[in-house]
Design a protein around this nucleic acid. Structure first.
Lengths: 198, 198
DNA sequence: ATTTGTCGCTAACGTATGTTAGTTTGTTAT
DNA sequence: ATAACAAACTAACATACGTTAGCGACAAAT
């Protein structure tokens, strides 16, 4: 009998959720089976249910974990007293860092949320919509202050968020540039298009 | 008995592939069942197999259909005798148009190719890698000609391609701006970051 | 040492899935 | 009208999946 080993105040459930993130990322939620997950945890499939309620619970855990972190950062940034452009940059850097350092969870939350079931599904969709609205609002504030070029803010937000989720491919790439290089490259490319030409 | 109705030289197989694109987009490849597809086509599940070999064949058809169109455009653009910046812009506009007008197929090809099986899988991955290399090469030519800012070309390519795939959300959005507006907004935001500041 | 509760195991259930076999219906060509 | 073919149907198969029930093994507390 092989117990799930848990170092340092990390519950067995958390171990399972972490392994699930890896698996859901590489196979997709539907294609990843509980038996796959069990094997990667080192245990029989049925044993998982001593720690979790269902497969979907794992997805909840992942999606809302990520969503909450982003929402919290949004609140933090909104309250700072700095120009809108800097707020945008701060948010972008946060996104990039999350993608680099919590790759699996962020990726899963981004691509697999469709498979949430309905009290949670609409909740999640709402959160995303709200997040984007608030992001766009920051950009629009910058535009009114003539600090940012007059572009369509919602489109800009879409571009930013999806551009960053492209780090997925960087993550798998062989000839990696460093994480800081990546971050600065992205900021250059994304943000420099924002400011008016002189 | 309800036959699949086919107007205008369009084979029944093509009807099925088209419906599959819609279904795969909204549920994901794994979650979409052949019985779902059959219902949406208006026929029993088993009947589909008079026209197709397998579920995965539908995915091949979609993925390689899209990939081939992009490869062809790449060849076309490479051979034009225009500045690198304009080549980039042409490719981006093509991407945006494909995403707007062949939404379902492009989206599926982008997100569901993981579920291809192995002779096709590696083939598809190769095509993508090659496509990106050639795209990056164009940008690098522009950089050497001091026509484009010295940025990391592979990163720029990742950003561009993923940014455009974000149109997905625009497609579903209610308060749509027009397709041309969208295209021009995107080009402004993405391309303007490329040229050196004066 | 005994109790108690946590955790993992085996076995199995019910359901959904992709696909095949064999048959019947409808259409097209002679 | 009839033969020939295409395309739909019904029935069923094997497999894979999420999950439950019940039991045994280990660890912690008394």
């Amino acid at each position: 009998m092989a117990r799930i080993k848990t170092d340092n105040n990390v519950s067995r459930k958390e171990v399972i959720v972490a392994k699930a993130a890896v698996l859901f990322r590489e196979k997709g939620f539907k294609a990843a089976s509980m038996r796959d997950l069990a094997e990667s945890v080192g245990v029989e499939a049925a044993s998982l249910y001593n720690h979790i309620k269902s497969k979907t619970e794992l997805l909840h855990e992942l999606c809302f974990g990520v969503a909450n972190r982003f929402m919290q950062k949004m609140e933090e940034v909104e309250q700072e007293k700095i120009p809108a452009g800097e707020k945008v940059e701060k948010l972008l850097r946060f996104h990039i860092n999350e993608m680099v350092h919590h790759y699996e969870e962020v990726y899963v939350s981004d691509r697999e949320w469709k498979h949430l079931s309905d009290p949670y599904l609409s909740n999640f969709q709402n959160q995303r919509r709200i997040y984007r609205k608030r992001f766009a609002a920051i950009i629009e504030t910058g535009i009114r202050a003539k600090e940012i070029e007059p572009i369509d803010a919602p489109t800009a937000v879409l571009i930013f968020l999806h551009a960053i989720s492209g780090i997925e491919s960087w993550h798998r790439s062989k000839q990696k540039i460093s994480a800081e290089e990546l971050e600065n490259n992205m900021i250059t490319i994304l943000v420099d298009g924002l400011y008016p030409r002189k």
